[in-house]
Write a protein that binds this DNA or RNA. Structure first.
Lengths: 338, 338
DNA sequence: CTGAAAGCGCTAACAG
DNA sequence: CTGTTAGCGCTTTCAG
């Protein structure tokens, strides 16, 4: 707790605290020598302005909230890095909130955040979130809110996302070109636009290339690792098992590989697979994984940049930007011909 | 920004703000029916107490800082999860600061954090940090500080770490038992106690099992991915190349695998490798990686728990705890015989 | 049981 | 160029 207040500093200098305050802010209405005196003394006494007193007065916290489903995922880790990096240069502080894919938690967090604790919010919605009213409320409160990655289309806000539809299309087309006939789409949520967009891209590619779209090939997974393993095991043990698969989310990759190993399916000979993933280890997997790699770091950075731009403006109005940063298909052995 | 203040709420209820304040805190000196009225109206008006006004008055922020070198690493991701989870249950807020392994940044962050912004700090020191004075200062300021994972032995603080010496010993012994004669130790820092402890464990095992300890086998890597690749490539191209390796840090694993592939060294036939790592993908690598797996989530949780316990006490005194949570050797194919 | 008043540390009019 | 004053929204004595 900082003991030395601006009052103490002023007293030491025989100045008023307002003069000291202005001097510390390098105000033009203070003489150069006074500024120097103040700065020197501030350093000497190790004066640290109390941020909350300042926030209270200025009605500005210089803090943002990052609300995400989880952190043990390389996408969000990299996104956080992008956000934190730019926040640091702008002198902002970053509060992290995890929703654990739970809509109730998300709601609570968003309520709390309206207290004035933060100047703005960066968010990637939880997979369980279907209703949007808790977001509308925050929105109505006038708090700048930027969605990144997992956006909600129908809410009017700035968004930073990737080309999910095209990526889904590209992934499916790649598998078709590599000879797959029955391509499974492994999804994590039927609510998330991001998943639906990828799914729609996948369906469009199948249709364009005269492959039947079968509901049986669209597999909804959960947030539970053990359950996912079972779901994938059931899928791959079927007679009519897929010969290609698209994992729409990173955490399905490990169970998918394990299931294939368990039942002696060879990747890519028996089944080819593409993962939406930012894993550094994709290239050293057995076999190396073909990925749709998202620009996670850039997305975090861009979302933060848009937020800070908004915060610097006087009257912020919604939905100024809908930025799309392209993902990249990186072909590796998991989709090799035979 | 919350528009409805406690004043407005009081006016609406024809009560004084002090009564309302007490009622909201469920004070015993307020009648039950008044409490109910207040609570109902608070809900109706969507009253959100301004946290900074409260913090200013109470000199307590209900916020902690987590200061770590990076986040795109599965150890820290999981640790954050552990921290956040318990913070959420305790009603605390979590500020994230990344040092990028840079001692200067770390210093700046710790200075800022003394402003009263947080009630305590959880920290894992940067690999560049050798001097400790910036930590002493924070320490002297009386701000509770808990180290986790990357601790500094000589600083008196609560610590949560893993059994690094034993892990290093165990890793080396395992490689010796699997027939390795020339075991490299891939380190990231010569300052970090954590690295030195692992290194010392490694050395002790070599000595105990009559293997020569050679300085040439102790390889100092950097924080730059490209550089690390080159360093490892040079190492493995030598005539006297190692037939076993211990990666003391997760990020060296991918370059190590890539180098081996590049120069056609087979893992484990030509060289066996163990990684200190929490990677979910360890089991599906080519080949599956033998790991020393740290209890990252538990370490984060424990560190946070100790901090909160400290915050609840009146007069906190240092170095009450030095908790060691054991890591686990998980044997996989990368250290197979032949 | 309720209210009046003071003040946390800072900033921003407004005077001088 | 410097100082006085008021107040951000809340909590906490201390009276009533």
């Amino acid at each position: 707790m900082s003991q030395v207040t601006i009052q103490a500093l002023a007293k030491e200098l025989n100045l008023s605290k307002s003069t000291v305050s202005k001097a510390l802010k390098d105000s033009h209405e203070i003489s150069v020598e006074t500024k120097e005196r103040v700065l020197r003394m501030a350093k000497l006494l190790q004066y640290k302005p109390n941020p909350y007193a300042s926030s209270l007065r200025r009605k500005k916290s210089n803090t943002i909230a990052v609300v995400i489903p989880e952190v043990a995922d390389s996408f969000f880790s990299q996104a956080i890095k992008g956000i934190e990096e730019i926040a640091q240069t702008k002198g902002y502080h970053v509060l992290i909130y995890l929703t654990y894919e739970n809509s109730e938690k998300e709601k609570k967090i968003l309520e709390d955040v309206q207290s004035g604790r933060v100047d703005g919010v960066l968010m990637s919605v939880s997979s369980e979130t279907s209703s949007t009213e808790h977001i509308d409320v925050l929105h109505a409160a006038g708090l700048p809110l930027i969605f990144f990655d997992r956006t909600i289309q129908k809410i009017t806000t700035d968004k930073v996302r990737t080309d999910d539809y095209e990526s889904g299309y590209q992934a499916a087309r790649h598998l078709i070109e590599r000879g797959c006939k029955h391509i499974a789409f492994l999804s994590i949520s039927s609510h998330l636009d991001i998943d639906n967009n990828r799914l729609n891209g996948y369906k469009a590619a199948l249709t364009d290339y005269n492959c039947a779209v079968s509901e049986k090939m669209i597999v909804l997974c959960t947030n539970n690792a053990a359950e996912n393993y079972d779901i994938l095991l059931q899928l791959m043990k079927k007679k009519q098992r897929p010969d290609g698969a698209i994992a729409s989310v990173e955490k399905l990759i490990t169970p998918f590989y394990l299931v294939c190993r368990k039942i002696n399916l060879s990747i890519p000979a028996d089944v080819k697979v593409i993962g939406f993933s930012n894993l550094a280890t994709a290239q050293i997997l057995q076999p190396p994984l073909t990925t749709i790699t998202q620009p996670a770091f850039e997305m975090g950075k861009t979302a933060a940049a848009i937020l800070f731009k908004a915060l610097e403006k006087r009257n912020y109005s919604w939905r100024e930007e809908d930025v799309i940063i392209r993902s990249e298909l990186i072909i590796r052995d998991s989709t090799d011909m035979k």
